[in-house]
Design a protein around this nucleic acid. Sequence first.
DNA 1: GCGACAG
DNA 2: ATCTTGTCGC
Length: 205
Amino acid sequence: MLFRARRARALQEELAKKVVAEDCFEEAETVGGLDVSYKKGIGCAVLSVLKDGEPVKFLYTISKVPIPYVPGFLAFREVPLYIPLLKEEKPSVVLVDGHGIAHPRGLGVASHVGVVTGVPTIGVAKKRLVGEEGSCEYGKCLFKDGKVIAAILERGKRRIYVSVGHCVSLRTAVEIVKTLWKSRLPEPIRLSDSLSRRLIRQWSP
DNA sequence: GCGACAG
DNA sequence: ATCTTGTCGC
């Protein structure tokens, strides 16, 4: 299938206007984690749900992914897999593997899925996509047009980029991610990453 | 044209 | 992301 970059870009610019960078919830009673693993054109997405730091539910979906990966358009590949999961289960807030507003048009995969489902989301990426690095109230941050677009959290040699997805403030996003970051990735995403990887490996077709 | 480029 | 064995370190 051919990828329409022009239409995709127009949609991102439209949806970017709907992003809310303020908290839309009181307490993060449950925190979800979303990630996808692939194997020959097939993708397996997993939504892990944690309560008080402990996993209480896992949901997954497997289907063909005809959209190629193009930097800046990751959402068109992964959001279709995330939608059914968030339609069935709505955590207080969800950590998404990838950037939120720290994106060329302010609509990374975390913001995209948040806006179309209405679920509060936080972007957690392992690598920078856009922005210049500099110091800020969180230590280091990514700046774009002189504004903070992501906080850089560091643990030894490892670092993760935390950004507003939708319906959450950067301050709250950083606070939530910090309490759940115990190993390579924040717990909700780490669990979804390992489970989706296991499920897609055993997918025989 | 050259380098950068989430997963 | 995925392709892939051994290997260094706690």
